[in-house]
Design a protein around this nucleic acid. Sequence first.
DNA 1: CTAACGTTAATAGCTGCTATTAATAGAAGC
DNA 2: GCTTCTATTAATAGCAGCTATTAACGTTAG
Lengths: 201, 201
Amino acid sequence: MIKNFTKAQRQKKIKEYLSRDPFSSDKRLAKLFNCSPQTIRLDRMELGIPEMRKRIMQVAKNNSSADKVKALKKEEIIGELIDVELGKNGIATLKTTKNMAFNRTGIVRSHYIFSLADSLAISIIDAEVALTGSARLRYKKPVYAGQNLVAKARVARQKGNKYLVSVHIKSEREEVFNAKLIIISMKNEEKKEGNLNENSR
Amino acid sequence: MIKNFTKAQRQKKIKEYLSRDPFSSDKRLAKLFNCSPQTIRLDRMELGIPEMRKRIMQVAKNNSSADKVKALKKEEIIGELIDVELGKNGIATLKTTKNMAFNRTGIVRSHYIFSLADSLAISIIDAEVALTGSARLRYKKPVYAGQNLVAKARVARQKGNKYLVSVHIKSEREEVFNAKLIIISMKNEEKKEGNLNENSR
DNA sequence: CTAACGTTAATAGCTGCTATTAATAGAAGC
DNA sequence: GCTTCTATTAATAGCAGCTATTAACGTTAG
C-alpha cells in the first residue's frame, strides 16, 4: 500500500488544513488524507484538536461576540479591528504584504490605505447602514510592504445623519496618512415591520 | 398544571430567543419554556427553524470566511483600462459585483470606487513610479452591485512632479463619484531607498 | 524473536437530533 | 351525552459524529 505521509507529516497537514477549514468531520479528513477515521482521531487527540462540532462552535462564538459593529460585518472590514467605541472612536491595524504593493517599488498601493481608513470610519458609526459621502485624503509617506499600520479614527462632529470622522494612520509611530471623511448614516425606516398579522392574544 | 403560554405566544418567544441566542438545544429550550422537548420540536417545525447544530453552522459560516484581513484582489481593483493618453487622460471601466458590496444593502463599498479612480489616475501619469499624495473624494450616489462604472480621468494641471488629476465616475450616464487627486511622480533615483530598516531580508 | 510503534477495527455509549406512531387531556361542536 | 379537534407528551427506531476502550494486525528496530 502507498504510504502517503509519515505520521508527523500527516499531523502537520491536518493542523494546517483545519486552521483553514474547521468544518470537516473525521470521516472527510480520513478520505482527504487517505487513512481511517480512527487514525484521524488519534492524531487529533495527540494534537489536542477538538471534534468538528466543537470547532464549529468556536468559530460561531467568535463572530457572535463581534456584532458590536453594526454597519459592517467582520469580513467586510479591511484590516483587523482592535477596539471600537461606537459613535466615538476606534482602532484597527493592517499588516501590509507584497500583494498590496507595486512589484517594482514595494510601495503599498494607496487604495489599501484608504480602505483601512474608510472601513474603520464606517465601523465606528452607530448605525445599521453607513456610507461614505466625501473624503479628504493625505498620504504623508510611502508605506512599504511589510510595515504594520495602525489606524485611529475619531468622530469629530455629528450633524444629523452626517458624521465627520478623522482618521490617522501610523507606522512605527510615524504618521503615514490621514483623512477626514464624511460618513452618512441611513435611516432605519424598515426596521419596525415585525408582527402585523401574528394572531395570538 | 400551569399553562405558561399559548402556543402562539410560545412560538413567538422561541423565535425571539433563538434570534438572540442560537446555541440552545431543544432540551434547554424545553426547560426555559417549561414544556417538553417534543413540543419545542413541533414548534421549530412549524416555524421552519433548523436544529441547533445547523443554527450554529449558519453563525459559524457567516464569519468563517474571515481571515481577519480581507485583501482586495488585483482583478477587482483596477477595472479594465479602455484607453490611455499618457500624461493627458484615460478611461477605465469596472463591472461591480456582489463581492464588492455590503451584503445587507447591495451597495458597493466605497473603497472599490476609490480604487478604480486611484488606479486610473496613477496609470495615466507618464512616470515609472507614481504615488498618490492627497485626494478629495465625493460620493454622489450609491452604486449597487451589478452596475457598470465608467471612470474618466484627466490631468488638470502639472507642477514639477505633481499632477492634479480629476476623475469622474459614471453609471448609466449619471455621475456617482468624482475626485481630485494629487499624484506625485518619483524620480528613478528615489526608488531604491525603500529598504532602509524595514521589511529587510 | 520480540517489543514497540502505527494503523485499523469493533464495540458500547453519548448528544441532539429526524421521523413516525401513539396516547392523553381539554375544549368545542352537534 | 358523544364526537372531533387541538395541543401536548411519550415512545421508538434510526442517524451523524463523536468518546472511550479493547483488540488485532503489520512493520520495523533492537
